[in-house]
Amino acid sequence: MSTGDLAARQAALVAALVAGAPLPPGFAAEPVAAARTALLRKRAGEVARHWPLLAAGLGARWPELFLHWADGRPGAGSLRDGWDFARHLRDAGTLPPLGAEELAAREAGHRYDGQAAPRPRPLPAWGRAGGAVAVQLAGRVRLLRPARR
């Protein structure tokens, strides 16, 4: 076993836990896999707190769907994780109406390029998802039209 390179070994372990990298040599597979799943469940809970309507819209399927999407995808913080996941569902045509309304409201309020932290939109703006339309004026977001149900 290599020693004297703690930084590289820690990086390899984190990559295996959150980015789908192979298990570093010498670790027991089953406990590390259990830890990986526990991390994903914790993350699902945190994202659900930031995106309550999206999580509620998916109901009992939330943990399973989120875990499937998030496995091997490093976290970017709960706000961005939920945003990316909602856009993924929108693109797949499976975003529930409550989630569409939440996404439309977020899109109206903030500009998010999928790479860096979302920034407030300074000018009046629209957000649309799944038929839902939200408008932002002077920082206040209002849902103009509900999503298709």
Binding site: T3, G4, L6, A7, A8, R9, Q10, A11, A12, L13, V14, A15, L17, V18, A19, A38, L39, K42, R43, P74, G75
Partner: peptide, 22 residues
């Protein structure tokens, strides 16, 4: 514990090797 390495956030507290280096 450590919570990030190599530019990635683990999202939780991770154990250290119980080594002199750690």
């Amino acid at each position: 514990a450590f919570v990030r390495a190599g530019g990635l956030e683990a999202g939780h507290l991770l154990p250290l090797p119980r080594s002199r280096e750690a």
